[in-house]
Design a protein around this nucleic acid. Structure first.
Lengths: 359, 359
DNA sequence: CTGAAAGCGCTTACAG
DNA sequence: CTGAAAGCGCTTACAG
């Protein structure tokens, strides 16, 4: 097969104009000094010939590919579209392409997926690490998106604050009896969210936390989280650490004949696609992915730098973590269940007011 | 910044062994004839030095980047994770990387996103086209994933057959009164799915089709599809062309106090993440994304070819469509609502049996 | 079987 | 301000 790219290269422009390729390069990059007139002529000719620079040649020469990699623990994660979109946008704005990696759901494949990226000579990698994973030195700059509670430098939403926002909203609706629903007690993100929620529950509020790791396992008939019983026990607010769990709670409650939001409120996190589609809509908290992506990509680009690759093997930079400090990006409430018929803001259940049964 | 990659290149191996770079290249690629002993020595030394080939240099020399692009109309599409994962896997198996493109939700940006990909010299592009979009000649091989009903060469699930599978399932449960729910009457995919469903409704069955394009608009309080009334009119099966619409139907029915699956069955399409999480689970139809991705990537790789780029400008290949024929990949039912209390398989509604009120 | 040479398209010191 | 030269790391005819 013939080459895909149009035939025009710097040499073509140079010879068409009787100048050198170096001058064309200088004119087009604006780096070397070129007379205004010649510069204009060169740019015009480039335009005329439909010149498209060869990123490949540039990469070979400069040692920078202008591509970053994106790694998620599980590409099937419902948050992936939001993240990928934000990263791609931020990268494109910075002149970078985004190569994706998938570990095929297998934890042990994650390293291989990252390695494939490195072999493709990405200039840096954005990683949303698998739960509990420490990212090894990759030999290239890395930006980690994770909870601020995670050791090491990360960019992240302020999940704790997000939890507070949800709790404030629920408390404002009059709720005093909370069921907090999490997926994994080892997740820093989820612990932050739950911690933030708890921190805003008023004196006398009652809460209970349930962790449900394998949500799909409940799909079988008869399986349930027992949420109906919680309602019978006087719980009225069901606050999940993810929209997926909130969806489970919503449908299970509805299935049990509980009216939402009249008898109970359900909230989630992340404003995933279905939260605006279910009836009633899910109150949730949205991450500012654009801001997170900008910080992550910006940090990466900063470390990658603009200087050319000097073949100075002695100073090979290994395992740079690009994000220099822990950035916390605020989250915003998306309230879709704005009413609730909780008896009164001062309502206390018949059972003694507990500070919770949590460990 | 110093170059990221380890210092070892072919020249390093060559000089360490006192041979030429050409021989190293031949030994490592297995293309030129090299004596078995020398070949082994070279491979050992490469291993020892931690040699990683420069994809950049190879790309510059061969004219092929070994990267393909992936373009979806809307990266926020809930099917995106499934597709991206499948394409990435198929591409990795074929030795290709995957660069993503995003049009930022803006239809007019799609062309720009594709152009960015082309400028990065991808060897080919996999496109899931925006509704009604014809893909212009891109100057590089393209594989289109779309409905088989779409003009031109495409790879696709057999959406019609998928519709039949759903209908067969519902009919088998005893349903005779169907509400078909689609998102967009202009979508070939959805028309195929609905067409397939209709084709399997038995004589005397009644059906009605409703199209609901802006699902999110329903999130507001009071908005509804009026599904409760449908139940009152005797409809028992609600079959949507997407899990997102099915989710809306499920929650709206539950919200209205209808018991699922006792009083009505709800089915969707695509086995999106929440279909196994809601209560009760959604019966749905799964696409074989792995097979589709393999066909798409395989076709692309076939067109890209193994031959080197001869600078034969006269035969620049423009707008190749890589997929040579319309492939139809069968879909499989995922039944999660396996019971229904429809009076009897021969039950006919009081109202006259219609062939449907559809145009 | 092995090597010397050219070249993919660009950028970057270094001269002029 | 402009150009000649070298080189990023590889592959591919072509000689030997």
């Amino acid at each position: 097969m013939a080459p895909i790219r149009p035939g025009s290269n710097m040499t073509a422009i140079a010879s068409a104009l009787g100048v050198s390729a170096a001058t064309v390069s200088n004119a087009l990059s604006g780096k070397g000094r070129v007379s205004p007139e010649l510069g204009a002529k060169i740019r015009a000719k480039a335009e005329e010939l439909g010149y498209v620079p060869s990123v490949t040649a540039r990469a070979l020469r400069t040692g920078r590919s202008r591509v970053i990699g994106l790694v998620l623990p599980d590409i099937a994660n419902p948050l992936f579209p939001q993240i990928a979109q934000a990263i791609e946008n931020a990268a494109a704005d910075a002149g970078y392409g985004v190569l994706i990696a998938d570990s095929r759901g297998d934890s042990s494949m994650q390293t291989l997926a990252i390695q494939r990226l490195v072999e493709r000579q990405v200039d840096g990698i954005v990683i949303v690490p698998r739960l509990g994973t420490r990212i090894a030195d990759l030999g290239c700059p890395v930006a980690v998106i994770d909870s601020p509670s995670t050791p090491g430098n990360t960019v992240s939403s302020d999940h704790w604050q997000g939890g507070q926002v949800v709790a404030d909203h629920l408390v404002g609706l009059g709720h005093r009896n909370f069921v907090l629903i999490g997926a994994n007690p080892l997740s820093n993100v989820q612990n932050d969210r739950i911690g933030g929620m708890k921190s805003r529950l008023p004196k006398g509020a009652r809460f209970e936390t349930i962790w449900i790791e394998k949500l799909e396992a409940l799909a079988g008939a008869g399986c349930s989280l027992g949420l109906k019983q919680k309602v019978e026990l006087g719980f009225t607010a069901f606050a999940a650490t993810s929209d997926l769990h909130a969806l489970r709670a919503l449908t299970e409650l509805q299935q049990a004949g509980i009216r939402i939001p009249q008898q109970a409120s359900v909230t989630g996190f992340d404003d995933l696609v279905w939260s605006s589609v279910v009836s009633p809509g899910l109150t949730t908290v949205r991450q500012d992915m654009a801001a997170i992506a900008e910080i992550a990509v910006g940090a990466l680009v900063g470390v990658i730098g603009d200087d050319a690759a000097e073949p100075d093997a002695a100073t090979i930079t290994v395992g740079v973590t690009a994000v220099a400090k822990t950035d916390r990006v605020p989250m915003t409430l998306v309230a879709r269940q704005t009413t609730a018929s909780v008896s009164s803001p001062d309502f206390s259940p018949a059972s003694p007011a507990l500070e919770g049964n949590d460990p």
